[in-house]
């Protein structure tokens, strides 16, 4: 069967720093040839390969600086790979970025908005960039934000007056307005209170079930990953160290008197603690 994959990452490489050249692709061709990054470079994504099927909720787990966000940015056309190939529904992110962009949207850990503008003004702006009319946006904003538990009055007040959790819900609404076939969720629930977290998780599940949206989710929350994801990749040092369903990942390690959790699997495979980025001041998310 020749099914078009939602995401096909083939031997992707991304590094930062080193003796990269200004405009040329000299480094990229070198890496395509199989050699390593230039001296002094920090390799963020190191020959990663993975495939995500349509309609799947795929999780990426990893400690700070493991390359999760870089991988998402490569898929989102915000970074150009230094090696390998990334396609979204068959379109190459480097060769056909606009085709990819029209199929995707993204929610990142920072809910980035024009802070003086209201959620409605921010969302109108975001939606227009994807060709959604003002009338359609207004109706959908009210519907999405109500489902996410956001009160209607706050939709017309400046974003800067909202809590981080509320801003994150608006960020989710922004991503959904364009009806993406692929939704990239980069730690969407970090910093949210338990209730907001549950609202978002419920919504993610509904989105996949009702609209068949493919979702790539990075998270530090093992329970969230287990509850939402069909398959999970554990990434460490830019490399995938395990990839399977949550159940099969748990079967990879031995029982120590209790049923292993995803966190046990993670610790065993990476030797590292998971910590939310906002718990580590000064940590650089790459």
């Amino acid at each position: 069967m020749n099914e078009v994959l939602a995401i096909d990452v083939e031997n992707a490489v991304k590094f930062f720093g080193g003796n990269s050249r200004w405009w040329g692709g000299a480094n990229a061709s070198r890496l395509n040839g199989g050699s390593s990054a230039p001296a002094g470079a920090k390799v963020a994504v190191d020959h990663v390969s993975l495939q995500v099927r349509r309609g799947e909720i795929f999780g990426v787990l990893g400690p700070n600086g493991s390359g999760k966000s870089t991988l998402i940015r490569l898929i989102a056309t915000l970074l150009i790979p230094d090696g390998g190939r990334v396609t979204v529904f068959g379109h190459d992110v480097t060769a056909e970025p606009r085709k990819v962009q029209s199929l995707i949207n993204r929610v990142s850990v920072e809910a980035s908005f024009f802070k003086k503008l209201s959620p409605m003004e921010n969302l109108q702006y975001g939606a227009r960039l994807y060709g959604v009319s003002a009338g359609e946006t207004t109706a959908r904003v009210l519907e999405i934000l109500a489902r996410l538990g956001l009160d209607e009055k706050s939709i017309y007040r400046p974003m800067e007056e909202m809590s981080r959790g509320m801003q994150q819900k608006v960020a989710i609404a922004r991503a959904l307005l364009s009806k993406p076939s692929l939704l990239l969720l980069d730690e969407p629930t970090t910093g949210l209170d338990p209730r907001s977290k549950r609202d978002v998780q419920k919504f993610v599940r509904e989105l996949r079930d009702a609209q068949g949206t493919t979702i790539l989710l990075t998270t530090h929350d093992m329970i969230e990953a287990e509850a939402l994801c069909d398959r999970i990749a554990i990434i460490d040092g830019g490399k995938i160290v395990a990839l399977n369903t949550p159940g099969k990942l748990k079967s990879l390690i031995r029982h120590n008197g209790h049923a292993p959790t995803l966190e046990d699997v993670f610790l065993e495979l990476t030797g590292k603690q998971l910590a939310a980025e906002d718990e580590m001041p000064g940590a650089l998310a790459i």
Partner: peptide, 14 residues
């Protein structure tokens, strides 16, 4: 300044 640059440059527009 606002931190929105990635969202704008990710939009499918010329």
């Amino acid at each position: 300044w606002e931190g929105t640059i990635e969202y704008t440059l990710m939009a499918p527009i010329t």
